[in-house]
């Protein structure tokens, strides 16, 4: 039981990533494709946070500890910092790609990936 619980976050992360990739590859609406990419991004973030988790540990905030924090275990703060950065970057990427989809829709009148192929000609 314990082994399953330990590995569960990683299993979920991989599942979400595969689901996101499937959406990216097989959905035809550009908005859906971007949603798939957000899923992949969340999966990677979940993976990172799960790496630093310990079952019996507290959040890595020093000021809230009683008795100077003797004997208290904390979860790894590095991955949380990485994830925060990755979330910010992901937000910027998603916002920019959505704005590009809006521009494409304005000029092409569609968000279907089969019709957004004018560069090939």
């Amino acid at each position: 039981m314990n082994a399953i619980l330990t590995h569960l976050p990683f299993v979920i992360a991989v599942t979400v990533a595969i689901a996101g990739l499937a959406v990216v590859l097989w959905r035809r609406n550009l908005i859906h494709v971007l949603m798939g990419m957000s899923l992949v991004e969340s999966a990677v973030n979940l993976f990172l946070v799960a790496l630093g988790y310990r079952h019996d540990a507290v959040a890595p905030i020093y000021t809230g500890l009683r008795d100077g924090g003797e004997g208290v275990r904390m979860v790894l703060p590095t991955v949380q910092a990485l994830t925060l950065t990755a979330i910010v970057i992901g937000l910027a990427t998603t916002a920019m790609m959505l704005s590009l989809v809006i521009v494409i829709h304005r000029h092409y009148g569609t968000t279907d990936v089969r019709d957004v192929r004018r560069l090939r000609e």
Partner: peptide, 14 residues
């Protein structure tokens, strides 16, 4: 560029 450049940018970003 009539949407063409936006298409190129989106592809690169994705």
């Amino acid at each position: 560029d009539r949407g063409l450049a936006a298409e190129a940018g989106l592809k690169y970003a994705a």
